[in-house]
Design a protein around this nucleic acid. Structure first.
Length: 805
RNA sequence: GCGGGUAUGGCGGAAUUGGCAGACGCGCAAGAUUUAGGAUCUUGUGUUUUCACGUGCAGGUUCGAUCCCUGUUACCCGCACCA
């Protein structure tokens, strides 16, 4: 073979690897284990996107190299197959989603297999398989038993287009993350998961993990921890209002209080007739309730609105000052206590509000001009107008005031999180049924574990009902059941789980995918877990990644899994954009189909190009021309065998080049710098062509280094030239520093910081000899003649620099 | 507004304890070969006629700055009234 004959060899080697089960991970092997993970895809009807192979190939390269380095590698693949697009397609075509899913999976599997990825296909999982979702339901029951799943009547985000309830994480700029539809608030009874109970640990345990810094910061910001205090303010009604503040030190500057329009006490005061301007207050409440999330987002930076309560006021418990109470939608009911003390001098939002409503602004921290704007610096400035706090720094005052409040019994320090509990119910068909039964006498009763899985029953219509209930609710035969506790009449839960459920634990199932007694054998989990390296998209950091860490931590707490964190290392890939630099989409007409590239240039070309396209972490535009450059490189690699002469080493230059390449490729794979690893191999190949010959041993090493990137062509060449066994299972080359050393090094010579020439010198040259040689160089001489050398700098292996006067 | 990031030829991108800027690939140009070629091979390719100038912009530190410091501009991503 003198070029990459992909038409003949791609399929051939894929079949051989399959047949020999070359990439099968072995439970309990004495070799060191290595668990590499890619995010399993949602098998959509569109088939594989050109973006999919990028992370898959990257992790395949890492897995293949690890395998060749003697590791027992677990590199699995599966299907995250519950979800809305399938359900919507089912509605449109009146086809069973199960059938659509099977068809899509088969198509995806075939496409993925055509890329020659070294997955252990014997461990394939599918979230929609009852043998799989039995355990998703089982985990839900454990969460329920431990008080971490609860049903709650609450305001939820509802996508008007998908007709589905969304988790907070699924609402983007007030719109549906998936379809962009408008999100409104609805009050519904929902299953919730208490992820907030793990908020602190989800932050703390990041410290020991090898996650990209931006992944860590994004998770930390999303969880949104803040330290402050809760303080009780007495009111003229006799009720106390508790506020949350991160700036208790500024309490002497509190000139009014703001409560969210939804605050329970407002309703109480209205009912008791304490509020004289009740009509105005009610009107404001109604208006606030009407606003969708999108409108509310739009409100940011717009003028503040609100209504002052006439008839109820509050008292500052420290200063004793009487202050008015407002309601305003800039205070959220869902964060803190739903009420704040407003300190306009030192909070921008309060300042805006105070200016609009002509409220007093009292400076309590010196350092700014509070008539011009809020002074919010906490690092500098001292307390003024604050009684016993005067003269203290912000940090000192915080401590002092909290001590005082605790002493008085009116407040205490408090940590709050932005993270909310996870809305876990969906009123849809294509998801795992929530395994709960509602009994008139016993309330919510879990389905006994021996009755799992609660299978999705066949239905005739997949549309959600007009009242927003799941299609399952129409199946009276299925809904009506008996209570597992008392045997009386009961109804099944008709909500299903969100598509994040099955993906929250799939990596565990890979360790033991066919177990029907447990979600996985504890011994196998102990052997394989944690995942050593997990690569995925940045878009999943506050969704899937956080959810699955939560589940893994819970399962660790109840002794199901052996590690407190599921993933040791997390990296993220960039997107592949269209040729025009825009995101690929049908409407833009810039979509590239991976099948076309594979059939036109071969799988190895696609793999190589996606790795060569640019920095793995960044997005990069597709270039059809550059794809051909990669094909050319592979063709030249095959043709290079015509240059083979003899054994051993052909020249010092190629020997050292080869060893440098071993080092470079090995290190670059470990740091995901695939583009420079490939560039190094291309440069070496150019050097070999320049020399005109190489030995069989050198050639074999070269194709071994290339194998993780281009497994088909290198496997074929290896076999052609009499290589033993499969190249994919051969030994990774060892780097030998002594062989990588050059005999001669080109030194750069500078005079007064400017490059004036280069001089070749023996590798081990001493400083004095090097300086003498540089001074003797004709070109350099010209710059030194007639000048005094005031400084001589020698950087071994790199440069010589003269400073002259 | 807050948090994170980026800025280098015609294009994608290289270059780290500060040491030859532009590796590698694409594109382009000339030539060879070919019936032909979106094939292959060879050579050249940052700008400039020269001096010289060049890593978003303006300064600074240094013998020496894409890299460190100060200021500034543009763009991208995430969050967004979280008290």
């Amino acid at each position: 073979m003198t070029r990459y004959e992909f038409e003949q060899i791609d399929k051939k080697w894929q079949d051989i690897w399959d047949e020999k089960q070359a990439f099968r991970a072995e439970d309990f092997s004495p070799k060191p284990k290595y668990f590499t993970l890619v995010e399993f895809p949602y098998p959509s009807g569109q088939g594989l996107h050109i973006g999919h192979p990028r992370p898959y190939t990257a992790m395949d390269i890492i897995s293949r190299k690890k395998r060749m380095q003697g590791y027992n590698v677990l590199f699995p693949m599966g299907w995250d197959a519950f979800g809305l697009p399938t359900e919507n397609y089912a509605i449109k075509t009146k086809t069973n989603p199960e059938i659509i899913t099977e068809r899509n999976i088969n198509h995806f599997r075939e496409q993925i297999k055509s890329l020659g990825l070294s997955f252990d296909w014997s461990r394939e999982v599918n979230t929609t398989d009852p043998d799989y979702y039995k355990w998703t339901q089982w985990i839900f029951l454990q969460l329920y038993r431990h008080g971490l799943a609860y049903k709650k009547e609450m305001t939820v985000n509802f996508c008007t287009s998908c007709k589905i309830v969304l988790a907070n994480e699924e609402v983007v700029n007030g719109r549906c993350e998936r379809c962009g539809g408008e999100v409104v608030h609805k009050v519904k009874s929902q299953w919730m998961l208490k992820i907030t109970a793990y908020a602190q640990r989800l932050i703390d345990d990041l410290a020991d993990l090898d996650f990209l810094p931006r992944v860590k910061t994004q998770e930390i910001n999303w969880i949104g921890r803040s330290e402050g205090a809760e303080v009780d303010f007495p009111t003229s009604s006799g009720d106390k209002v508790t506020v949350y503040t991160t700036r208790p030190d500024t309490i002497f500057g509190a000139t009014y209080m703001v409560m969210s329009p939804e605050h329970a006490l407002i309703q109480k005061w209205l009912d008791a007739g304490l509020i004289k301007n009740a009509d105005e207050v009610k009107a404001y409440q109604a208006e606030a309730a009407k606003k969708s999330d999108f409108e509310r987002t739009e409100m940011v930076d717009k003028e503040k609105t609100g209504v002052c309560l006439d008839g109820v006021s509050a008292t500052d418990p420290i200063s004793g000052a009487d202050i008015p109470i407002f309601i305003s939608d800039y205070v959220l009911a869902t964060y803190g206590t739903g009420a704040i003390m407003a300190v306009p001098a030192h909070d921008t939002r309060d300042w805006d509000f105070a200016k609009k409503f002509n409220l007093p602004i009292i400076e309590v921290i010196k350092g700014g001009d509070v008539e011009k704007g809020a002074y919010t610096d906490v690092a500098e400035g001292t307390l003024v107008n604050s009684g016993f706090l005067d003269g203290m720094s912000v940090a000192e005052a915080k401590r002092a005031i909290i001590d005082k409040m605790e002493e008085m019994g009116i407040g205490h320090s408090k940590v709050n999180f932005k993270l909310r509990d996870w809305v876990f119910s969906r009123q849809r068909y294509w998801g795992e049924p929530v395994p709960m039964v509602s009994c008139e006498k016993c309330g919510w009763v879990p389905v006994p574990e021996d009755q799992l899985p609660v299978r999705l029953p066949p239905v005739e219509h997949y549309e959600p009902t007009d009242d927003g209930e799941s299609p399952l609710s129409k199946l009276t035969d299925w809904v009506n059941t008996t209570c597992p506790r008392c045997g009386g009449p009961a109804k099944r839960e008709t909500d299903t789980m969100p598509n994040w459920a099955g993906s929250s634990w799939y990596f565990l199932r890979y360790c033991d995918p066919h177990n029907d007694k447990a979600l996985a054998d504890p011994e196998k989990l102990k052997y394989w877990m944690p995942v050593d390296w997990y690569n995925g998209g940045m878009e999943h950091v506050t969704l899937h990644l956080l959810y699955s860490r939560f589940w893994a931590k819970f399962l660790y707490d109840i002794d199901i899994v052996p590690t407190k964190e599921p993933y040791l290392k997390r990296t993220a890939h960039g997107m592949i954009l269209g040729e025009n630099g825009e995101k690929m989409s049908k409407s833009r007409g810039n979509v590239i189909n991976p099948d076309d590239i594979v059939s036109q240039y071969g799988a190895d070309t696609l793999r190589l190009y996606e790795m060569f396209i640019g920095d793995f972490e960044k997005s990069a535009p597709w270039s059809p021309d550059a794809v051909r450059g990669c094909k050319r490189f592979l063709d030249r690699t095959a043709a290079m065998q015509m240059l083979i002469k003899g054994k051993g080493s052909s020249s010092k230059k190629i020997e050292s080049g080869l060893h440098k390449a071993i080092k470079k490729v090995t290190e670059d794979i470990d740091s995901m710098k695939f583009n420079t690893a490939i560039a190094a191999l291309m440069a070496l190949e150019n050097d070999i062509y320049d020399q005109g010959s190489l030995t069989i041993d050198e050639y074999m090493t070269f194709i071994t280094l290339l194998n993780p990137f281009a497994p088909h062509i290198t496997e074929e060449l290896w076999a052609d030239l009499g290589g033993e066994g499969l190249l994919s299972l051969a030994k990774w080359p060892e780097y030998d520093e002594s062989k990588a050393a050059d005999e001669e090094i080109t030194y750069a010579v500078q005079v007064n910081g400017k490059l004036r020439g280069t001089v070749n010198m023996p590798a081990g040259i001493e400083k004095d000899d090097a300086l003498a040689a540089a001074k003797a160089d004709d070109r350099i001489k010209g710059y030194l003649d007639g000048k005094t050398i005031v400084k001589e700098i020698f950087v071994p292996g790199r440069l010589i620099s003269f400073v002259v006067k």
